[in-house]
Every structure is written in structure tokens, then in C-alpha cells.
Amino acid sequence: MKIIVCLKQVPDTETQIKIAPGGEKIVTDDIKWVMNPYDEFGVEEALRLKEKFGGDVTVIGMGPKRVTESIRTALAMGADKGILISDAALEGSDSLGTAKALAAVIKGLQFDIIFTGQRGIDEDQGLTGACIADLLGIPQVSLAVKLEVAADGKSVKVNRPVEGQTLVVEAQLPVLITTQKGLNEPRYASLPGIMKAKKKPLEEKALKDLGLDPAEVGLGGRKLKIIKITPPPARAEGKIVQGETPQDKATELARLLHEEAKLI
């Protein structure tokens, strides 16, 4: 089974995000970059399928050189080869631009299943997976929390949550599946895995290798423009309800909820 995992590098969830002057970007100087957690589920699922059906796992990432670190992590977890798409002309691409670049690389590869995280935790758009599937003309199943490939390796059954219920979807391979928390528990990059990853192939591709029109991608090709980024409002200080008796306190609480918070 040929499996492809697309991964994005995003700021670590512990990072203190600062907005750059101008309000359209974040300050990237102090950021610790990690593999998008939703993509980790994809890597893990790909490795499990490989263990069951054989085949190989290719991870593809896009961005500056530092993205190599996340690709290496996937290789250390057990993926077989990596591809980094890195080109200054691709910087600033929106989800569609990113999908075009990824799809251009994937077109040159054999694949049965493509995994992407259901969204990147940085911009939270959740579009890239669907765009890639569309560009490749294959079905997409989103938000997978359980996945079962038929014994003959020709179709897949995917569970996805819908409003407290579970929807079971079946699709023929090749298919693109976006992964959601709950699908699996991603493995660690073990120390032996890390040392092996050093020797695994990691190919780098530039825009010229993709056969894309530079106008379609990068900042110039954006269909979506970020107008402004604002931080969430600071949390107001808590309030301790005063009162002599529990009854007094409850009355006061009810009054505050009604008059100040306007919740009841």
C-alpha cells in the first residue's frame, strides 16, 4: 500500500503568540515549531496501515528549511521517505496555493491513501485536504476518528463524528482522509528511529520542479487575504460572591448572572 502523509509545521501550542506590527502576521522569532498535531494522527495511521498491508509511507511538507525537522520526526516515527517543497516564491500561499503545490508533487507519485490533518492548529482553516482531493479528482473523507481498510485493500470505511452521532462512510481507494483527534495515539520517535531517520531519503523540490505558474501560488496567488489578526480579549478577573448565608449568596449570584452577565 502506498501511503502519503501531508504535514504542516506549526507553532508549538505552548508558544506565546505575539502579533507583528501591522496586525497581519505573527512574530516568528521566538517560536518553537512542531509538526501539526492533527498531522501526527495521519503519520501514525499511515504507519499502522503499512504494518498491516506492507508498502511504504512518504511524508510531504512545505515551507522553509526548518520544516525538514518535522519531516525528520515523521521519518523517525517510521515513515520511509520525505519530500520538502521549499521555495521563496511559495511563501505566503493560502490553503489553495498550498494544496496546488502538494498536489503537483503527489501527481508524480503512486498512492492509495493520502492523509492530512483535519486542519492546521495555526490558521484553523481546514481547507487544504479538501483542495488536494479536488485537484487530484479523488474522494475526500474528513474528520476520521476510526478507519478500516478492507482486506482486499480496495476500499476503506471511515467513522466520523456528527453532532454526537457517528457517520460511517465508505470510499474506494485512492482516497484522501483528513484525521481528527481520537483516531489513534501517535507513537514517539524512538531513539533507534531517530538514528535510522538520519539515513532515510529526504528530497527537496522547488517551484520549478512542480510545473506550476508562479502566479497561482505564494502571496500573489492568494484568494484569501488576512486583513487583521487580533488577540483574544483578556480574561476578566474572577469575582467572589459575597453574602452572610448560602441563600444570600445564591440570590446575589442569580442577580449577577441576570443583570451583569445577562446569562439568565
Partner: peptide, 14 residues
């Protein structure tokens, strides 16, 4: 090296 960094991440993850 890249390996040192990854080993640190794995150990911290653990």
C-alpha cells in the same frame, strides 16, 4: 545536531 534535538523532544514527550 538534528538528532540531539529530536532525542530531547522524545524524552520530554515521554
Amino acid at each position: 545536531t538534528e538528532e540531539h534535538k529530536m532525542i530531547l523532544e522524545t524524552a520530554k514527550d515521554f
